[in-house]
């Protein structure tokens, strides 16, 4: 069905025309996304987790607002039980308060809220680097393969096949076993080196179909250089796919990193991550379950909200279910 304010062809010069279309498209996408209730709730929760984890324990030299440090050993109070209470007094609870150690303490008396926040921070940081760098590599390789075809494509796609047949977790574990010692940043880079394959295939597919489209042929016929065709004509049209895929890869990265750290091949002490916390305290499960529950809850919360955001983006970019035939 056509919208009444359709752009007349041939109005303005080429760049302007595309800019106008892109904006209206962008507005549509934004509107659909903001209407996706679950995605919006997820976005709020995700941002809250992000802000909470980074502000509470601080970033680098900047101190956080939380009174405890994630390395300071203290005395264990009340068996390290969490002091967080969310049941209001009039319902027979202890009233809503945080207390001294809302998430409890571990066996050395370290405040578990601080530890969990630090773990969240590291896990999130790794996830962002993996999502960003992995997607960048994926787009680069997929775009090159899809646009230049020929030998470039054969080599790149065969290379992708080679990477894909190795189980992601296992091959990353092999390298991360060493890279983990170099700190979370290098661990993230190593993971990213193996997570780009899916997006590369998708982007290549998109490029293959887009390069046959009339507007690309027109640009090529007009002598537009390759990089400009890619940047101006093809990439904007694959933006949705890339954005959705990058978002979802963020969730995958959180799961992957925590799994690695759980097996002992990821983040190494003295630093910590959510996966390492689960790994370290799974033995304490029976006596002090909160040490095991909290980091897990944060992993699920991050992965779940990011997946919902990705789903919302997908719906926004590809609202197939709203189509009506006429």
């Amino acid at each position: 069905m056509s919208t009444p304010d359709q752009q007349r062809p041939g109005a303005g010069d080429e760049d302007q025309g595309i800019a106008v279309v892109a904006r209206t498209q962008g507005q549509l996408v934004r509107r659909r996304f903001f209407r996706h209730r679950l995605a919006m709730i997820s976005l709020v929760v995700f941002v809250a987790i992000l802000v909470l984890s980074f502000s509470s324990t601080g970033i680098g030299p900047i101190p956080g607002w939380w009174k405890h440090d994630y390395t300071t050993i203290g005395t264990v109070v009340d068996g390290g039980r969490p002091t967080l209470s969310v049941v209001p007094g009039f319902l027979g609870g202890d009233g809503i308060h945080l207390g001294e150690h809302p998430f409890g303490q571990d066996n050395k008396g370290i405040d578990y809220f601080a530890l969990t926040m630090r773990g969240t921070q590291i896990s999130l940081m790794i996830a962002f680097i993996v999502g960003g760098l992995g997607s960048f590599i994926g787009v680069l390789i997929g775009a090159a393969a899809g646009f230049f075809r020929g030998w470039t494509e054969t080599i790149l796609m065969r290379f992708t096949d080679v990477i894909i047949i190795m189980p992601l977790l296992a091959i990353v574990a092999v390298i991360a076993n060493q890279a983990g010692n170099a700190g979370p940043f290098w661990l993230a880079v190593v993971i990213a080196l193996f997570t780009w394959t899916g997006l590369a295939r998708i982007v290549r597919g998109e490029f293959l179909s887009l390069r046959e489209k009339e507007f690309v042929e027109a640009a090529r016929a007009a002598g537009t250089p390759a990089w400009r065709i890619i940047r101006k004509h093809i990439l904007p049209n694959t933006l949705g796919v890339i954005l959705v895929s990058a978002t979802l890869s963020l969730a995958g990265a959180v799961i992957l990193e925590t799994a690695l750290s759980f097996l002992g091949f990821g983040v190494k002490p003295p630093d910590t991550s959510l996966g390492r916390l689960v790994s370290v305290y799974q033995g304490a499960f029976v006596t002090r379950p909160w040490l095991f529950i909290w980091p897990g809850v944060f992993i699920v919360a991050i992965a779940l909200t990011v997946n919902f955001i990705g789903d919302g983006l997908r719906d926004a970019f590809d609202p197939r279910q709203n189509k009506v035939r006429s």
């Binding site: 799994a259 097996l263 996966g275 897990g296 992965a303 779940l304």
Partner: peptide, 17 residues
């Protein structure tokens, strides 16, 4: 969505316990 977001290792330990 929840299943996809569940870390297997965490869920496995929960199952066990």
């Amino acid at each position: 969505f929840v299943f996809v977001s569940l870390p297997i290792f965490w869920f496995a330990v929960l199952l066990k316990q």
